[in-house]
Design a protein around this nucleic acid. Structure first.
Lengths: 111, 111
DNA sequence: TAGCTTTACGTATCTCGTAAGAATG
DNA sequence: CATTCTTACGAGATACGTAAAGCTA
């Protein structure tokens, strides 16, 4: 499982249709269907029930929707946090920013 | 960014060495180094400082370690939760298990 | 020089697109 | 028979392995 599986899964869950989700994602239905099947194999049971018109979440899928949203949100936040930490480290190396004019004390390995 | 990047990143962070991390992961150093560089490009700044003997986390890397562990743990938990939900749904469909003998009321699309 | 990491490039794996098949109302 | 999902298979993208180069004490 990787983040793409979760993104695709949420798209299908939101659209309640592999076809419409594929359009929104900018890919074709068959590859999307395959990715969903891969995820279902990894979970060990279906995430959707296939209906005559679209798909509907199973109990397992319903549960995964919650976690998938949290994971993707956390992944986005992680990147932001890392970027912020990098800016912070540049602006205030080793929290010595309180001692203006002493930046030459920075470790050589921590720019 | 996908989960593999985070797994590789944590391996390097724990080993404080691309070489040792690659051995533990069962891959070679160059591909691992490339994956780390990809992640650093996506973050927009280095996650490690390259030392004569191994690598050391930057502030950005230090921050990402925390989030990466949380994300991977949450991903594992998500799979377990989904599997548990599937078992629960099989054993107790639609929480009607309290009404023994009424399983024929199940929706046709939710086995 | 020794011990790392990085670059360059070929190979294998995986995702995606296209076309045809299957199922349901 | 129309709509949707699935299967089959070839093409393109991506990760990996090997070999050689760079870097720093």
């Amino acid at each position: 499982m990787d983040l793409r599986h979760l993104r695709y899964f949420l798209a299908v869950a939101d659209a309640r249709s592999v076809t419409r989700a594929a359009e929104l994602l900018g890919i074709r239905q068959p590859p999307l269907s395959q990715q969903i099947q891969q995820l279902e194999r990894e979970v060990g049971s279906p995430l959707f029930n296939r209906l005559p018109r679209g798909v509907a979440l199973t109990q397992a899928g319903l549960r995964l929707v919650q976690d998938a949203r949290a994971i993707l949100a956390q992944a986005d936040r992680a990147l932001d946090d890392a970027r912020r930490a990098a800016r912070g480290a540049r602006d205030h190396p080793h929290r010595l920013h309180l001692l203006r004019g002493l930046q030459f004390l920075r470790h050589a390995h921590d720019p």
